[in-house]
């Protein structure tokens, strides 16, 4: 009983620490403590195999994955929480307490019944916990087990598909166009060239050159700032080799032209008559 209470208190405190830490890395470490405490509870419940699996899968794989993503996205992920005591949070806590009261009443007011299974503790002590689990997993639950294998494969394929750069490989060149007079479709494909209207699709994607047809100084400056703040190293290395054409009809101040020249390899100001 004492052992259970100690583990329960550790688990609950760690769970609270996950929520109330401002630093995401500390949250992940608190999560590790929570998982380990629950794994220890599995041992007290005579589920040794799952206790080990819990430590391997949750503490070993999942927490490490969380930490990797935190590192990948930068360490300054702490959200600016001014105060935890807001009306909304108090409402959430009250709702949580109501839910706990309902569950607690249901648990303590009722006697828990259920059909007893075949694996009494004496039998499990004879054949071994892992053997008992394996025997039932590979006979009665064989199909769900194989479905889990399918699920894992689909998960791997999905993650790889998500993680790779989504290049527009069907088109040879992607040109970003800043044209205030362009209305209608965001993208226009002509043969091997696809033109994307930046003013309507201000997201990061991979492109090969820039064309400024008609844009105000603010719009060009905003474009320069957004591209300049791109954190993707691969795209940044490409910006330095791109060309930028400024068509007649778009007159930009020298400052903006200089910032464009800083960003891209060459900036052509096309001479001629405005269309």
């Amino acid at each position: 009983m004492t052992f259970f209470l100690i583990l329960a208190i550790i688990a609950v405190l760690a769970a609270l620490a996950v929520i109330f830490n401002r630093n995401v890395v500390h949250s992940a470490l608190a999560l590790l403590v929570n998982f380990s405490a629950i794994a220890a509870l599995y041992f007290t419940l005579n589920a040794q195999f799952l206790g080990i699996a819990q430590i391997l899968v949750y503490a070993g794989a999942i927490v490490v994955l969380f930490l990797f993503v935190v590192m990948l996205l930068g360490a300054d992920l702490g959200e600016p929480v001014k105060s935890w005591i807001t009306g909304r949070n108090i409402g959430i806590v009250i709702l949580g307490l109501i839910m706990l009261t309902i569950i607690g009443t249901a648990v303590f007011e009722n006697t828990i019944y259920g059909a007893q299974g075949d694996f009494s503790q004496e039998l499990v002590a004879q054949v071994g916990q892992t053997q008992a689990l394996g025997a039932i997993l590979f006979t009665r639950y064989l199909v769900p087990f194989q479905l889990v294998a399918v699920l894992l494969s689909v998960g791997i394929v999905g993650v790889v598909w998500l993680a790779q750069h989504q290049r527009r490989q069907n088109f040879r060149t992607v040109i970003v166009v800043l044209d205030a007079g362009w209305s209608g479709e965001t993208e226009l494909a002509q043969g091997d060239v696809v033109r994307v209207n930046w003013l309507r699709n201000q997201a990061f994607f991979e492109f090969d050159s820039v064309e400024i047809v008609e844009a105000s100084d603010e719009e060009v400056a905003g474009f320069v700032v957004q591209i300049g703040n791109d954190t993707d190293d691969w795209r940044r290395s490409r910006y330095r080799h791109m060309s930028c054409r400024i068509l007649p009809g778009c007159v930009l101040p020298e400052n903006t032209l200089r910032s464009l020249r800083d960003l891209f390899a060459e900036v052509h100001v096309v001479e001629g008559v405005a269309r």
Binding site: F49, L73, G117, L137, P144, G155
Partner: peptide, 29 residues
Amino acid sequence: LDSVTGQVFVLMIMAVAAVEVAVGLALVV
């Protein structure tokens, strides 16, 4: 309840949780 079925469920849930967190974090990235 002296039954191993619950443990089989937990094994399945662990696999699902691993996939879920992998896909979720890939989506975040």
